[in-house]
């Protein structure tokens, strides 16, 4: 993939002072123009990986190339072809959006004539034209995120790194950002490496997903393939009369193994897939069982995480976060 817009990572490691191993030998490949979702709880090693791939932190082992350039030995070349919007939008409260563009374009050595035109184009694209001459100090969180994304695009990067880009955004801003990221990959062929702890974000946006836990990739593939690999859909029914719970369990057991359910309900995995739902309804009707609720659960990426690590992704980050503790400069 050398020379293309892809990312190739092999045995990448980062150990911090005190022996904290934030990333423990990860391997991954991102194809040009692909949106790769890097999913994991807080402290899993997502941000440390991004810091290494963007040349902000040297790896302590392994190798990685971005657009064909080695992140350890060709940092300057890597920085020329990447854009990045990191977790905290690093903006200067005393500068306006236009002044940020001037700085960003200047750092990348863009010609003065092109700077203004590119700034106008990007500000319009992220809906900040009216606020372009206001100091950033007065921007909302969503506006800061959008400006940060626009700044990352100023020099037309071939690879874009987005580190939890929608954390703290309202649903409207979140979907607008998703749309823009999708457009960048689809229309402009930009490779996007996106970290997130939101399952929905990875599911909706990413062509492929890598799930990282405690510094190791535990699963990788397309969201559908990952979900299909770990199991079947399940159906959960809640009896209208709680005394019918036993009978309901008997009927449902004909369709598959028991699955976890709410306290009042009974659930089973559907061995034959969601097509069996009609048969389930018929069986309940035949048994004259009245139900207060009937729900089908499709496998989620959380189920994938649960299957691979034995823990749920939501809440997994509550455990001691090696990455956060290690974020102190060594």
């Amino acid at each position: 993939m050398s020379g293309s817009n892809g990312i190739v990572v092999s045995g990448l490691r980062r150990e911090f002072r005190g022996g904290i191993k934030a990333v423990q030998g990860i391997d991954l490949e991102v194809a040009p123009g692909e949106i790769y979702g890097f999913l994991g709880p807080n402290g899993a090693g997502k941000s440390t990986t991004v810091l290494m791939l963007t040349t902000l932190l040297p790896p302590t082992g392994g190798s990685a190339t971005v657009a064909g350039f080695d992140v350890a030995g060709q940092g300057a070349q890597v920085r020329r072809v990447i854009g990045a919007a990191l977790q905290e939008a690093a903006l200067d409260n005393y500068l306006t959006a236009h002044e940020h563009f001037e700085l960003q374009a200047g750092l990348h050595g863009m010609a003065r004539k092109q700077r203004r035109a590119r700034a106008v184009e990007l500000l319009e694209r992220v809906g900040l034209t009216d606020a372009a001459d206001r100091k950033i100090g007065g921007y909302s969180g969503g506006m800061r995120r959008r400006l940060d994304l626009a700044l990352a695009l100023v020099h037309r990067p071939r690879v874009l790194f987005l580190d939890e880009p929608t954390t703290g955004l309202d649903p409207q801003s979140r979907s607008a950002l998703w749309e823009e990221v999708g457009r960048l990959a689809g229309d402009e062929g930009v490779t996007v490496f996106l970290t997130t702890q939101y399952l929905e974000e990875a599911d909706v946006l990413a062509d492929r997903v890598g799930i990282i836990d405690r510094g190791r990739i535990v699963a990788e593939g397309t969201p559908n393939a990952l979900k299909a690999a770990i199991g079947q859909s399940s159906v959960e029914a809640v009896p209208a009369d709680p005394r019918d719970r036993e009978r309901l369990a008997d009927v449902l057991s004909r369709f598959g193994e028991p699955a976890s359910a709410s306290p009042k309900g009974v659930a089973v995995r559907l061995g034959g897939g969601t097509e069996e739902l009609v048969d389930v309804v018929r069986a309940l009707d035949a048994a004259e069982l009245s139900v207060a609720g009937l729900q089908v659960h499709e496998p989620s990426l959380d189920d994938v995480f649960l299957a691979k690590t034995g823990r749920s992704l939501e809440g997994a980050g509550d455990q001691p976060a090696a990455e956060e503790r290690a974020a102190v400069p060594a």
């Binding site: 920085r79 690093a90 903006l91 960003q104």
Partner: peptide, 12 residues
């Protein structure tokens, strides 16, 4: 403020 990261990231 974290602004140094922007500089380190964008400066070839």
């Amino acid at each position: 403020s974290g602004f140094a990261r922007r500089l380190m990231l964008a400066a070839p």
